[in-house]
């Protein structure tokens, strides 16, 4: 009996610890969701006080919050479009062609991912100040495109590397010109990778604080808004935005999973 209990514990303790760690990761999200329904007792309090739906019905109440969210969405969208296009082109070149400069280009792509944001943020600021470029929307966009490109290249390249090059040969064999081959075979097959890269870009851009902080001038994105609000009291509506972001992202991930499962079952 003792042996069996010992055995049972030996089999489960790792999972037990793992679930505890997951609880640690989940706790702040639960708190954010909870705080989105909280009416704080005063401006600087972060404690639970009483239940309310006001924050959800009046998201745009705090001055500047919705403007900041809108700005983040605009920058995120544009940064995603630029980075996805530029990064996808690079991924195609790297995955489909052998050429002399490939190792050098790989280093150029890798470095931004390994450099601390602090260094990238300050260096861009140094560049813009030296070049007398006015800080604001466009400098933020330039910075975001820069750090998203590498992630797009890596994501799309992984998808292309997993793709059978014979499919393109088959298309050419079946009278598809190079353009038709790309349009009818390569692009549709690479699309899941491109979409994943775009979603990643958007979330990286939307959530970036450190690099944005150095290059925003007086432009306020959502993370900048939260940072600034921290000094004078964070309105509870910020938690509504946080909860909504979480819900949207979770739905997207679960939806792709369901699609993938459906694909896997028929395979």
């Amino acid at each position: 009996m003792n042996y069996r209990i010992g055995r049972w514990i030996a089999d489960r303790w790792v999972m037990g610890v793992g679930l505890l760690v997951l609880a640690y990761l989940a706790l702040p999200i639960i708190v954010v969701a909870g705080l989105s329904f909280n009416r704080p007792s005063n401006r600087l309090s972060y404690d639970f006080n009483e239940f309310t739906l006001d924050n959800w019905t009046n998201v745009c109440g705090p001055a500047g919050l919705c403007d900041a969210v809108l700005r983040s969405v605009q920058i995120g969208f544009l940064a995603t479009v630029f980075a996805t296009v530029l990064g996808t082109l690079m991924a195609f070149a790297l995955a489909r062609h052998k050429f002399f400069a490939r190792p050098a280009v790989n280093v150029i792509i890798f470095l931004p991912m390994a450099t601390p944001e602090l260094v990238m943020g300050t260096s861009l600021l140094a560049l813009f100040v030296t070049g007398s470029v006015a800080l604001g929307f466009w400098t933020i966009l330039i910075a975001h495109v820069m750090f998203c490109i590498s992630f797009v290249v890596v994501t799309v390249k992984a998808r292309l590397a997993g793709m059978d090059a014979r499919l393109e040969e088959a298309a050419m064999d079946l009278y598809a010109t190079p353009f038709q081959t790309f349009r009818r075979v390569t692009l549709p097959l690479a699309l899941p990778g491109i979409v994943a890269a775009a979603l990643l870009s958007f979330s990286l851009s939307f959530d970036d604080f450190i690099i944005t902080n150095f290059n925003s001038g007086t432009t306020v994105t959502f993370p900048m808004y939260v940072w600034g609000a921290n000094q004078r009291g964070v309105p509870p509506q910020v938690n509504v935005i946080g909860t909504a972001m979480f819900a949207i992202a979770l739905l997207l991930v679960l939806a792709t999973n369901v699609r993938r499962r459906r694909g896997a079952r028929v395979a």
């Binding site: 990761l25 989940a26 706790l27 702040p28 999200i29 708190v31 954010v32 705080l35 972060y46 979330s203 939307f206 959530d207 604080f209 959502f222 993370p223 939260v226 940072w227 921290n230 964070v234 910020v238 938690n239 935005i241 946080g242 909860t243 972001m245 979480f246 992202a249 979770l250 991930v253």
Partner: peptide
Amino acid sequence: APMFTSFLVRTLA
């Protein structure tokens, strides 16, 4: 999942 929401918001939590 934590990365689904804003870095600053979850740190504030």
